[in-house]
């Protein structure tokens, strides 16, 4: 598992809470991967966390539903619930203009 220190080095840091077996979670993973690879290059860290495998993390990060994207950086901490299909809204949250 990646250490916290390593995660902290990147400008953008996300944790995606999913249930890997579901359609929404699958879409959410696909969408965030596409956005990261297209706009953030190497400047991000992304952890995809299966809530069934890590129930303790659900409590720690106060997750209610899946999928939820927890944006740790840039601060302040924000949560996005859903399959992350609204790309414009997410880019706005990252302060990135869609070209």
């Amino acid at each position: 598992m990646k250490t916290e220190a390593a995660v902290d080095l990147k400008k953008y840091s996300f944790k995606l809470f999913v249930t890997g077996m579901s359609v929404s979670s699958t879409r959410a993973i696909q969408n965030i991967k596409t956005i990261c690879e297209s706009y953030l290059a190497d400047n991000y860290s992304l952890e995809i966390i299966d809530v069934h495998k890590n129930p303790m993390l659900v409590q720690k990060y106060d997750i209610i539903a899946c999928p939820t994207l927890l944006i740790e950086r840039p601060e302040p901490i924000k949560r996005l619930i859903g399959d992350l299909s609204d790309k414009e809204k997410i880019l706005k949250l990252f302060n990135i203009k869609n070209t």
Partner: peptide, 19 residues
């Protein structure tokens, strides 16, 4: 989008780095 724990063991890697 999903990998069970057997796959973690097979590659000897953390699940979060595989998914």
């Amino acid at each position: 989008v999903y990998a069970n724990s057997a796959f973690d063991r097979l590659l000897n890697a953390a699940n979060a780095t595989l998914v």
